Simulated scan of single mutants.
Amino acid sequence: MNETKPILTVTGSDSTSGSGVQADIKTISALGGYAVSAITSVTVQTTLGIQEFHDLPAKIVEGQIEAVMNDVEPEVIKIGMIRRVDVLDVIVNAIRKYKPKHVIYDSVFLSSCGDALVPEEVAKAISERLLPLCTLVIQFDAASRHGLANHYSSAVAVYLSKGETEERAQQLAKAYVNAQVVRMGGLQGRSSELYNEFIDALETHMLTNSDVHFYADCLNVSSRYLAQVTKRICGKAPKTIIDERLMQEIELQLLTTDKTVQEIAYHCGFSSQAHFTKFFKKMKNISPTKFRKL
């Protein structure tokens, strides 16, 4: 087999290292290859999914690709997440200019959590302009384990860089990934633990605070991460959980005590009876007085 040349991966960054350029570099290095990279997007990401995208300007992506291609001349390019048409233009132009032996496209349109990664117009442009230039297009189902497509396509890239045929490279990559799946437990977040802590905090503070930011601060996490946790575990937003638990307490007070509506309103942390009644009507579509009578 031929001496291995560097492999260029052009893709996004995953802050959990489960996919993206981090996963590519791990796999390429593990198989004895040498990875060079051009980043297209930086994601703010947890084990529960992507929170934000920060797409790099096309000029920056172009500069990264030009620097690598001019200096170390990789013969295999592995392409992942592309989210802008002007970035796609840069990549397509680079392929046409430098004519690498192999171009592998890992078709990244949905995350393993089902989040849309690529705008529709970009996906259409990729199909029309990038795919015809590719040696190999790799597509995994979106239920697939997080980062699995990265590991497979990066392994294919390594074997191609070592002079294997496309068919043999895919066979070897499949064997490698199958062997790794058993070991790849993946990074585990603390979502279950955090959810239980949120529920405990809610029991303690629900009569004095119904603000999501308050609970996020109590748990020392961002409100966005707390929302990802509750959505994953029970399919509800934190505010919905807070309001529903508060309603349980309100109904209990209305049905089992002799307190007036105003007293219950103050007991449950409302600033006025009017505010309390408005909240109750929004939740139950009936006034607290009528609810009590019924």
Rank of each mutant, 00 (worst) to 15 (best):
S222C: 11
I250H: 02
G235Y: 05
A237P: 02
T208Y: 01
T208E: 04
S272F: 03
F270W: 00
H213T: 12
A274I: 06
T230A: 07
H267G: 02
L252Y: 02
D258A: 08
Q248L: 08
T256W: 11
E203R: 05
F270R: 01
M206W: 02
H267A: 00
T230G: 12
E251G: 04
C234P: 00
I242F: 05
L226F: 08
A227K: 06
H213C: 10
D217N: 14
A216L: 09
A216I: 07
R224I: 13
S210Q: 04
K239E: 14
E263I: 07
S223N: 13
D211V: 02
M247G: 09
K236T: 05
L207P: 00
T260C: 08
H267K: 03
D211L: 02
G235Q: 04
G269R: 03
V221F: 10
N220S: 14
T260M: 12
R232W: 04
Q253T: 03
H205T: 05
L207D: 00
I233Q: 07
I242Q: 04
P238L: 06
I233G: 13
S272W: 03
Y266P: 01
A237G: 11
F214D: 04
P238F: 11
T204F: 13
H213F: 09
S222P: 07
Y225A: 13
A216H: 08
T208P: 00
A237T: 12
Q262W: 04
A274M: 12
H213I: 06
H267Q: 04
L254M: 14
T208I: 05
E263D: 14
T256Q: 06
V212G: 13
Q248E: 11
L226G: 12
E251N: 09
A227R: 04
I241P: 01
Y266R: 02
V212K: 10
D243N: 08
V212Q: 13
Q273M: 07
H205E: 12
M247C: 12
E249N: 02
K236N: 08
I242E: 01
L207Q: 03
L219Q: 15
K239F: 09
E203L: 07
F214W: 07
A216D: 07
K236V: 14
S210I: 01
Q273R: 10
G235P: 05
Q253G: 09
C268N: 06
I264V: 15
S272R: 00
L202K: 02
T230C: 10
V229P: 06
I241T: 02
N209V: 00
I242D: 01
G269I: 00
S272N: 04
R245V: 01
F270D: 06
E203Y: 14
R224D: 14
A227E: 14
D243R: 01
V221K: 09
Q248I: 05
L246E: 06
I250P: 00
K239Y: 10
T230V: 03
E249Y: 01
V261M: 14
A237K: 02
I241V: 07
S223F: 06
G269F: 04
V212P: 09
D258T: 02
L226V: 09
T260K: 00
L202F: 04
V221W: 10
T256D: 07
D243F: 06
T204I: 15
F214I: 08
E249P: 00
